[in-house]
Design a protein around this nucleic acid. Structure first.
Ligand SMILES: [Mn+2]
Ligand SMILES: [Mn+2]
Ligand SMILES: [Mn+2]
Ligand SMILES: [Mn+2]
Lengths: 216, 216
DNA sequence: AATATTTTTTAGATTTGTCTAAATTTAAAA
DNA sequence: TTTTAAATTTAGACAAATCTAAAAAATATT
């Protein structure tokens, strides 16, 4: 049985692995809001438990066991986020802190029943994929519009924000499901994106781009 | 901000206050599964925080502040139990441990939205009253089945023992919330009670009768 | 009232997760 | 290839929550 703290480390290492592998001490320290020395202590502990492969001065990689645990925490986090938004009418920006706590409730029955209750959602309110109980992610063939580069083309296949103001805004801009778009420019200043749609150029904020899902 | 541990102490002191006031160190130690010495340490800490009035060698009483905190934890515990049973199809003997963890999630928004989602339940799956957000309990008038006389009638509205074996036993006997019963005989020999339920006679031990709550 | 028993508290130690400051290793720059 | 800088680890300390064993206080019993 892992402590709340160990679980947070595992999850953070999991997320950081996507960017760099192995994961460095300082990167973890920054995310956990602790000091490098504390991280070193924890890495030794996780290594003793065989949840990470740790090489002094190099960094850590999750073992298969550690990875499964991390994915399970991510699974719970995202399921709870769906619950909060779909059932309790939280806004997409209100769910994170609470999910950060709920993800540590350990009960397989609870997790699986929650999944069922939510009708097995594939993505969370931010468009992030929800792994199944075995740790497998459905291959989602869409990415956030904000991840596209200049000249990339694609089709709008979903949104990861369901609020009325947001949807109305999209509609007004002509950004509806099935529409083909092309990124014509990305403005460094504010991260906003210029799109080509229906032979017209429009500009959307980074905030909006983050919640539009694109498939190629 | 209270720690998980402090919250558990507050809740336990609250429950024990009903039986004896002030609450004694050993009683708390038994409930928290710790030693008396540990309890003494915690009582000093809670006293410093003005959550309890503590008199050496005498015991503790919750302050108004401490009592409100305790009631809020009880509120969350019972709301989550309702959620688990009503929405996730948990059985009434399966909810306790999970609620024991969920009760520590601190988010007013979450608690109030959950209350609303559940349509403001007045009692939990065991018939225990759910306080409102100000700490007020609806006046529920029930008595122990063991206090009934022969020929007394009533409806099962709660239980005062939440262990899984006990609850499963009741279920097997058909003694669930809402069922109407009548006392047909009280056996002097062992204090067991003969009941009329669904036109059938069943016999329950005094031990069981002590933990069934009846309203007329 | 004196003695025995129970209850509670103190003293000192341990574990977990954290910190600061100093030492060490690795990486980058001159 | 030295020298410098950055990243990481060790050493030693601390707060929270717990423990055991011994001392002290409150109750109960003769
Ligand atoms: Mn967390
Ligand atoms: Mn999310
Ligand atoms: Mn608890
Ligand atoms: Mn209950």
């Amino acid at each position: 049985m892992q402590s709340y703290t160990e679980e947070n480390y595992l999850k953070i290492i999991y997320h950081l692995s996507v960017i760099s592998n192995p994961v460095q001490t300082n990167a973890i320290a920054e995310r956990t809001q602790t000091k490098a020395a504390s991280v070193t202590d924890m890495l030794k502990k996780l290594s003793d438990k065989e949840l990470v492969d740790y090489v002094k001065y190099q960094g850590v990689t999750l073992t298969e066991k550690g990875k499964l645990m991390a994915i399970n925490i991510v699974r719970k986090h995202r399921l709870w986020e769906v619950f909060l938004v779909e059932k309790l009418n939280f806004k997409w920006d209100e769910v994170h802190e609470v999910a950060e706590e709920l993800e540590h409730i350990n009960s397989t029955l609870l997790t699986e029943r929650l999944d069922e209750f939510l009708e097995f959602p594939k993505v969370d309110p931010h468009g992030d994929p929800i792994p199944d109980q075995y740790g497998n992610f459905a291959d989602l063939s869409f990415i956030k519009l904000s991840k596209l580069k200049v000249n990339d083309k694609g089709t709008i296949t979903g949104v990861s924000e369901h609020s009325s103001p947001f949807l109305k805004h999209l509609e007004k801009l002509g950004l509806t499901l099935g529409k083909k778009i092309e990124v014509s420019e990305i403005i460094d200043f504010d991260g906003s994106v210029e799109l080509l749609i229906d032979y017209k150029k429009i500009n959307i904020s980074r905030e909006v781009a983050l919640h539009i899902l694109i498939s190629k």
